[in-house]
Design a protein around this nucleic acid. Structure first.
Length: 220
DNA sequence: GCGACAG
DNA sequence: ATCTTGTCGC
């Protein structure tokens, strides 16, 4: 296992590989969701990657992987905990998604290299960061309607880190940021499209359910 | 020194 | 992440 300073150093190196513009074939047909579940008693962690048809949102393929956790939860070093089971699950897929929506931030990270960036760079696939709560950055209140957005910025530099997106009227917004090879407006649009009647993208909801099921199955 | 802190 | 029912509000 990497030490925390080593993990930070690796982030500083890999962050330079992040591509912030759209660099993937169109149209998007398969959208993937990734999520992880953890059991503190067994210290097992389960990762799930789910492939959905972009238009019908039907589940096309699911891959999961359960293993012992190998890194503590440290805000800012989240990917070192969640990536191992997600990479293992990804390797079991028989088809590749056009884009992967991650349950966690991308560039909206203290060192601009959250989970979505790390997975994206590691696999060199298009990824989007989609967190439920803020990790870093500031934003103004956004309108209550579905589709309302507000920029998430670093007050000190004025840098835009992501977009706060309201996917359901009056419901807490999501924090969307670039992962790899997907531009921010594209990312926000896809997250909104995948969240027609629910707060979180259908991809994340499905991945969450399958990760939970895989973990329960492993616990027997 | 104090508060904040993805899942 | 997870422990967890009813209850407040539109």
């Amino acid at each position: 296992m990497l030490t925390e300073p080593e993990a930070v150093a690796l982030q500083q190196t890999l962050r330079q590989r992040v591509i912030q513009h759209d660099a993937f074939p169109r149209p998007i047909r398969l959208v993937a969701g990734a999520d992880v579940e953890y059991n503190p008693h067994t210290e097992l962690i389960a990762g799930a990657i789910v492939l959905l048809d972009a238009d019908t949102k039907a589940v096309v393929e699911v891959a999961t992987h359960v293993m012992p956790v190998s890194f503590p939860y440290v805000p800012g070093l989240f990917s070192f905990r969640e990536m191992p089971p997600l990479l293992a699950a990804y390797g079991k897929l028989h088809q590749q998604p056009d884009v992967l929506i991650c349950d966690g931030h991308g560039l909206a990270h203290p060192r601009r290299f959250g989970l979505a960036c790390h997975i994206g760079v590691e696999l060199d696939i298009p990824t989007i960061g989609c967190g439920k709560t803020r990790l870093t950055g500031q934003y103004e209140n956004l309108a209550a309607g579905r589709g309302s957005t507000a920029p998430l910025t670093d007050e000190a530099t004025g840098e835009v880190l992501g977009l706060v997106v309201r996917t359901q009227p009056g419901i807490n917004p999501l924090f969307v940021s670039v992962g790899h090879r997907v531009a921010l407006p594209t990312a926000a649009g896809l997250v909104l499209a995948m969240s027609e009647a629910v707060r979180q993208p259908e991809t994340t909801r499905q991945a969450d359910a399958y990760a939970r099921a895989a973990l329960l199955h492993a616990l027997q």
